[in-house]
Simulated assay, not measured.
Amino acid sequence: MGIAAADAIPHAGPRLHKWIMDGAHGEMAWMPETAERRAAPANMWPEVASLLMLGLNYGPDEDPRAILSARTRGAISVYARGDDYHELIKGKLKRIASRFVPRAGAPGTVAVKVFVDTAPLMEKPLAQAAGLGWQGKHTNLVSRDKGSWLFLGAIATNLALPADAPEVDHCGSCRACLDACPTNAFPAPYRIDARRCISYLTIELKGAVPRELRPLIGNRIYGCDDCLAACPWNKFAALGREMRLAAREENRAPALAELARLDDAAFRARFSKSPVKRIGRARFLRNVLVAIGNSGDVALAPEAERHLGDPDPLVRGAAVWALARLLPAAAFAALSADHAGETDADVRTEWQLALSDSAGEHA
């Protein structure tokens, strides 16, 4: 943990404004909507004087990129393999705050607010100001002790506390995280274009994944750990690991075939208390079907075909793309004829483009 003054990040607001003006936030409408409050902690809570910034290492026991070669299984980001970290971390912060308040001043004079990634607060630059680490070239926080695997939380208070020294950048000439990105989501070091980030594409994006990016997603069905896992500072994280997320065994390497069969009730039950549940069945199946299309395994074609009649057009469109990647051109054309009555314009476009692609690939 470390302490930052509420006015410690005057540079963060202008940088955020430029990022939004560049459109790099994609469809995350809440970013421009909250930009003014996010620019400075006092804009969100005028009484705030200091922030206790806390980082919790959640580094995995293995390299999460190993599953990327198992193309018939889905890769779920490390942070999402267990229960929702928001509730996990918030409970810990509340316990700390409950002990801090009685010791910090006269009754009724000390106020605190607890935040875990859900309020318009710029946790990463604040954490750097508090000395926890620095924002690396992948824009995430990096610690010399914990590597790139850090959950961040904040306890804001109206007390003026002695601030810690900010951490300085230790990335040097290294660009391992930038080179590891499958979709080239970093137009420059320390800048990310969310519209190309797999975490954004599989979680935040509500519609169809852009066609040119689908093959690059591979079997990543929820988030992406590649830039984090590539960070050389991770070699020190194991030395100080104070917590290991209780990952659910079924989320380590789930079979795509199994996930493709989830109806809404089964999806909700399987991902109960998990951050995965928040994106809903349709977006999740979109991701699974993209992974099936990238699997190269024709045995998974029936799992995609069953979704050509799904009630949600987002799922139907993803199923079309997957089948075009797996089936011979003639078989795909015959399947297209069977579904000539498709009523959704976007799905009809998927059929048309997929027919053209299929014919070209198998010519």
Rank of each mutant, 00 (worst) to 15 (best):
A188C: 02
S199Q: 03
A165R: 13
A188K: 13
L178C: 11
P189S: 14
Y190C: 04
A185E: 03
I203N: 01
A208G: 08
Y190N: 09
C174F: 07
D193F: 12
D169T: 04
A180Q: 13
C181D: 03
P182M: 05
A208H: 13
G153Q: 10
C197R: 04
A176S: 14
A185F: 00
P182F: 00
A176P: 04
R196P: 01
A194P: 09
Y190H: 15
I198W: 04
A188R: 09
T157C: 00
E204D: 15
P166I: 08
I192W: 00
L159P: 00
A165K: 15
R175G: 00
R191D: 14
G172R: 12
V168N: 08
A154Q: 01
C171V: 08
I203A: 11
C171E: 13
A154D: 12
L159V: 00
D179Q: 15
A176T: 12
P187E: 14
T202N: 02
P187C: 14
P162I: 00
T157S: 08
A154L: 02
E204F: 13
A165S: 15
R196W: 02
P189I: 06
F186P: 03
Y200C: 05
L205A: 13
L159G: 06
L205T: 05
P187H: 09
E167P: 00
F186G: 09
A163L: 05
R191L: 10
T157V: 06
N158Y: 09
A208I: 07
A154C: 10
R195I: 02
V209I: 15
T202R: 03
L159H: 02
I155M: 06
A160S: 14
E204C: 12
G153W: 03
A194V: 08
R175A: 14
V209C: 14
